[in-house]
Nucleic acid binder design. Structure first.
Length: 374
RNA sequence: GGGGGAAUGUCCCGAGCGGCAAAGGGGGCGGACUGUAAAUCCGCUGCGUAAGCUUCGUAGGUUCGAGUCCUACUUCCCCCA
């Protein structure tokens, strides 16, 4: 096969692996963290900054972009890459997450989801086919199947129905997507917190022979140990030759633990949203910059960081900006957080390549536990 | 000189019109955020673990009961001279 979408594992360490996804718009080094840019922007960041931090791919969202500015309009303007000035790979979510997050504004049916726009209340039908069509109009490089994401905890019955519906939708998405060399459509494993359902979901999806597999419906209310247990259950059923993407996760600790278990891709709102809300992630753990104790602290968040936001601005100044609700405060903390996330990912990749992942993880967690630098 | 108005919870603004430990804001202190309806949301903010105690410029008074009514005083503001 001469597909231009290729996943290569270059090294493994335990269940963890490092490698690269190569595709026409660029290479994604794995394990990868993908900053979330729901509405065509990684909030509070310039694309150049996002790129410079080592991001190889960012997310976009079908639901949000179909409402505003509209998929056809984005297509007319040259696609999402051109529109948002991000020439590198883009992964788009299908709208499946909004099935959960906008539960009050949607209706499910076998055919698809009907959303009532959170913006103006208008009705929009999202079928598996339309979701793929929209993702195609956006010119997304990695497209996600439409799925039904369910909040946990839930009954086995609800988890099972959502999982089976998601499987049927996966097939329809695969047909709609067809053959697109250089691009990919990923399936999404569902099944709540039920081992049997997770395994069935994974096996059925693998039968569809997709280019990548996501684990969805996690970090949606369950404790971390449950999430990790689900990963351990699912991964052995996924082919080692395809990328595994844990959707929507997570905290640095979640990511480290998942990489250790063989996950290759992550996306999460955490670094960007938390940054806007005054929380900084650093090598020394989390720092709530709003807290009074930083008011007169001249030290930067991390003097050794190569990111200016982390090394060149005092905590006192960041504290001031956050308190004043200044835009720059959100920009700097988002920048710092994304820098830390990408620093962490680079560290994980290097550690796996060097066969010292466990040591790296121990050192990393030691830093978090130690707290403040110095 | 004459007339009118205002002082509220120990940071600020401010509701309150006889049953009030006293609405709301702001500020402050802390927390949350996981495929983004999020520059959002949630606590706490007189003392005490509690029964309870002490508060509404000051001092008296009326009343079962006063932040609310009356009197005087203090300070501030406005208008007329």
């Amino acid at each position: 096969m001469s597909d231009k979408f290729v996943f290569e594992v270059s090294a493994t360490d335990g269940a963890a692996r490092t490698g690269a996804i190569r595709m026409p718009r660029g290479t994604i080094r794995t394990p990868a963290f993908m900053p979330v840019g729901t509405a065509g922007t990684v909030k509070a960041m310039y694309t150049d900054q996002v790129r410079a931090l080592g991001s190889d791919v960012i997310l976009g969202n079908t639901y949000h972009l179909m409402l505003r500015p509209g998929a056809e309009r984005v297509a007319k303007l040259g696609g999402l890459h051109e529109f948002a000035r991000w020439p590198h790979p883009i992964l788009t979510d299908s709208g499946g997450f909004q099935v959960m997050s906008l539960a009050a504004l949607r209706k499910m049916s076998e055919n698809g989801v009907t959303f009532q726009s959170h913006i103006d209340g208008s009705k929009h039908v999202l079928t598996p086919e339309r979701s793929i069509e929209i993702q195609g109009l956006l010119d997304s490089d990695i497209q996600m199947q439409l799925d039904e994401c369910v909040k946990l905890p839930c009954t086995d019955d609800i988890a099972e129905k959502a999982m089976h519906l998601s499987l049927r939708w996966a097939e329809r998405c695969r047909v709609a997507f067809g053959e697109q060399p250089g691009k990919a459509m990923f399936g999404i494993v569902q099944g709540g917190a039920v081992e049997r359902l997770r395994i069935e979901s994974a096996n059925e999806l693998v039968n569809l022979d997709l280019k990548g597999y996501a684990i969805g419906g996690l970090a949606v209310g369950e404790p971390q140990d449950v999430m990790l247990a689900m990963i351990d259950i699912v991964n052995p059923h996924l082919p080692t030759t395809k990328p595994r993407y844990l959707m929507g996760v997570g905290t640095p600790d979640d990511i480290v633990e998942s990489v250790r278990r063989g996950v290759d891709m992550f996306d999460c709102v955490m670094p960007t949203r938390a940054g806007r809300h005054g929380l900084a992630y650093t090598r020394f753990g989390r720092v709530n910059v709003r807290n009074a104790r930083h008011a007169e602290d001249p030290r930067p968040l991390d003097e050794a960081s190569s990111c200016e936001a982390s090394s060149a601005y005092s905590r006192a100044y960041l504290h001031h900006l956050v308190r004043c609700n200044e835009i720059l405060g959100m920009m700097l903390l988002t920048w710092n957080n994304l820098a830390y996330y990408q620093f962490l990912m680079a560290g994980l990749r290097a550690a796996i390549a060097a066969g010292r992942l466990e040591d790296f993880i121990a050192e990393t967690k030691e830093g978090w536990a130690r707290g403040e630098q110095g």
